[in-house]
Write a protein that binds this DNA or RNA. Structure first.
Lengths: 222, 222
DNA sequence: TTGCTTTACGCACACATGTGTGGTATACTC
DNA sequence: GAGTATACCACACATGTGTGCGTAAAGCAA
């Protein structure tokens, strides 16, 4: 079984996509069109742009018009290609200690995590993050269509802003909730991943609303 | 000046540093000099650059000359919020090292795990087990109704027998598969958790069949 | 006082970088 | 054969963006 993962990308496109994702990961900064071209021996920026357009069309990246290094990775999970190398030297294992919190309080200037219930230790590559992570115990089935069930743990990377479509934890009227984030002309739609539930519409000027962080992973025990 | 944590930064410098770190985190792209200025109502790029120079001098960031969005965060830990609470009794944390295997070969007397691709380290309480655990990368959607998606990791506790209804990994005709186990008068039904798929009926006398282990947990990264 | 640091403005310059247009060539499908 | 997608090159253009330089006010220590 070859290429079971990303059959919708051509070999070339996948290589370029992986390179972009790797650059973001390792240098914290997406490459420019010309840097991509240099990497792949493409002397023309037009060639690179053709590939970028293909990746945009297929939903792997997006670009912000006009701004430099404007590429955004939309499918970070698709970028993790198998290492393909049997590592002779088992690499150093970095672990993270992740507090599981029962309550998340949003207090200026930053997030205050209260009520630490347990601490999970986790392999860093499982929870790729440059910041601090914490975990929440999920209640309810509002994200069941995204494969997140009642009782699961989700891992949260604290951040105060999010992009359209991100799965986030937010404080709405004092209560923490997990939803998908869709801002639209001043208002915010929080979309549950559950056919049976309605989206929540929020006017930030009227309702207390604060993004706690982005969901970066989940775990379940049977 | 009243901060306890990073006394070497002024309030202003610290705010700017945090903003840069947050931008890298949330958008995957450092801000430009002008974007920083806009955020902090600095009408002159010169003002921003003064602060950046201070952050460089104090070792918090570095910049790559000439390239756009060239700021690199050197102290990601300093961008984090304070760790909330000195936890009174930090309990002992036991971790397990879990190999992720690409291939599972069933050979007596016990399981032989081949092709170790990576090693996950995991908190013991997350994967309660008295034996050895290993992990598999899930391919396909056969267990999607159980909330296990393509690309997820599942944790396996090796065992050669299972009980009715257990979710197991089994070798069928040389291929590893994840199904729910239902034995019935000499035959075995392997039930996928997916409406669209049919159960597999196996006659152990005719088909190679061996239980590898029981699924005890799962994990996903976004 | 002098000197140093921090904070801040204004502005011009050069290069970094995204974007558009127009080519060539190959392969595949209908 | 026409149409479409991929994979390249060459080049021009507008704008994004880092950098340099000068100015100035406020606070603090020697």
């Amino acid at each position: 079984m070859k290429e079971s993962q990303h059959t919708d990308l051509t070999t070339r496109q996948r290589a370029i996509f992986s390179y972009i994702a790797e650059r973001v990961q390792s240098s914290g900064r997406p490459p420019t069109v010309r840097e991509i071209g240099e990497k792949f021996n493409l002397s023309s920026t037009g060639s690179v742009r053709t590939h970028l357009r293909a990746l945009i069309r297929k939903g792997y990246i997006s670009t912000q018009a006009g701004i430099s290094r404007g590429i955004t990775i939309l499918k970070p999970s698709a970028a993790r290609q198998r290492p393909a190398k049997p590592r002779s030297t088992p690499k150093a294992i970095k672990t993270l200690q992740i507090p599981v919190v029962g309550r998340v309080a949003a207090g200026p200037p930053i997030l205050a995590v209260e009520d630490i219930q347990e601490i999970l230790e986790l392999d860093e590559q499982l929870a790729p993050s440059h910041g601090e992570l914490f975990a929440l115990h999920v209640r309810g089935d509002s994200m069941i269509d995204a494969g997140i069930h009642d009782g699961d743990y989700v891992f949260i990377r604290p951040q105060k802003v999010a992009q359209k479509g991100d799965m986030i934890v937010a404080i709405v009227d004092g209560e923490a909730t997990i939803k998908t984030y869709f801002p639209a002309n001043g208002k915010i739609r929080l979309q549950p991943a559950n056919d049976k539930l309605q989206p929540i519409l929020i006017d930030p000027s009227k309702t207390e609303f604060q993004i706690v962080g982005k969901v970066t992973g989940m775990m379940r025990r049977f």
